[in-house]
Amino acid sequence: MHILLTGSTGFIGHTLQAALQRAGHTVHGGVSPRQRTLQPGQVPMDFARDTTATAWLPRLAGIDAVVNAVGVLHDTRARPIDAVHRDTPIALFDACAQAGVQRVVHISALGIEGSSTRYAQTKRAAEAHLQALAAQGKLRSAILRPSVVFGKGGDSSALFMNLARLPVALFPGPVLEARVQPVSVHDLAAAVVALLGPALQQTGTIDCTGPEALTMGAFIASLRQQLGHRPATVLRLPQPLTTLSAKLGDAVPQSPWCSETLAMLGSDNVGHPAAFEQLLGRKGVHYSQLVATAWR
């Protein structure tokens, strides 16, 4: 199949592209229009500005399926969250319906239900539009909602690994208490490959999680153990300093720690892995094995 993959140079997108190519697909990878030299198969696109279906129709010529793997945590002038999560995906989905591209796989996020953050609101809006198109029979959609995605190259994963190496760690309270269900980036990629192969007809929303949930603090402790270190001394950061640290993170566009992250940690990021495991044909990688299998 010829697959248009948005966000192909990002953490998740890069892994998806490699997995799709290994499965025999031809991937047309979306890259920034500011990239000076285009490699074969790369397609310039700008999620900050390509907010109309007309902008996407030429890119869909000869395309059999679309995978959207673009996402941001911060709202910035260069990457406004409303456009990146809502307006541009909606335009892309509308273009797919117009161009007859039936298969759309959309990478969303777990934990967005009931959240008032702009991250969650814009993610939900894109999901709702895609589901409406599918209900009208205009395309077949699969929405993947991963919990914390772990793997080499991920900003959050790198932060977790750096924290795991500290013999004395000072954590915000929500980081210690929030429940997550970490998933390997390679398992997420395997699910996308399945949805464009054996499970091509499968539709709906799928929670993408590891087999077991735990608190974020326990997850970081597990990473430390996997690295061969003794348990760390863990201290709790006072709430005022937690809020201040998140606001400081807002000023760093690539930082995975920011006010949006802090707000989202107020609710659990866990789900039901049965449908995900059915796609994989096995259980997902357990969090206790993530360093050995995904940190490479």
Rank of each mutant, 00 (worst) to 15 (best):
Q131T: 11
L196G: 01
R79P: 07
S259M: 11
I90N: 02
L133W: 08
P44Y: 11
R36S: 15
R145D: 00
A128I: 04
G7A: 12
C96R: 03
V168P: 14
Q42T: 12
H14W: 08
R282L: 05
G7Y: 06
G284W: 00
T54F: 12
T203R: 08
F276C: 02
T51I: 13
A109V: 04
G111S: 03
S267C: 05
L16N: 03
T9D: 01
V149W: 00
H286G: 04
S156R: 10
H286D: 06
A274G: 13
G41Q: 05
T261E: 11
T88E: 01
R86M: 11
L163K: 00
T233W: 15
L214C: 13
R36W: 09
W257R: 14
H186P: 04
A69Y: 12
Q254E: 12
F93Q: 10
P58R: 09
M216H: 02
S255F: 14
G249R: 05
L265M: 14
T243E: 15
D50T: 07
Q98C: 05
A19M: 14
A128M: 05
V66W: 11
L60W: 06
S255M: 15
Q239N: 12
D64F: 06
P80I: 05
R36F: 08
P253S: 04
Q42D: 09
T52C: 01
E177S: 09
V72D: 00
L237M: 15
L290M: 08
A178E: 06
A53P: 03
L223A: 02
H74T: 06
M264W: 03
A48H: 01
L130C: 09
D268F: 02
T6D: 06
L110G: 00
G151T: 06
A65I: 03
G266R: 10
A294S: 13
K152Y: 15
V175F: 05
G271E: 05
K283V: 00
T54S: 13
T261H: 04
A190T: 07
T88Q: 01
Q239S: 12
P167I: 01
A97C: 11
G210E: 04
P40V: 08
T76N: 05
Q102L: 15
W295G: 14
D207K: 05
D207A: 09
I112K: 07
S141L: 05
G204L: 00
L241Y: 07
I107G: 02
L244Y: 15
W56F: 09
A142D: 10
A23E: 03
S115M: 11
P80Q: 09
G29H: 07
S222I: 05
R165L: 14
Q278D: 10
G7R: 10
T117S: 10
R230E: 15
L16C: 04
N68K: 00
T117E: 08
P167K: 04
D155M: 10
P211M: 12
A125E: 02
D250M: 06
C258W: 04
G284T: 00
L73K: 08
H129A: 02
F171H: 13
G10E: 03
A190R: 13
L200W: 09
T88V: 08
L4V: 11
R296I: 10
L176D: 12
Q201E: 15
L144K: 03
T242Q: 07
M216V: 02
L188A: 07
A191L: 00
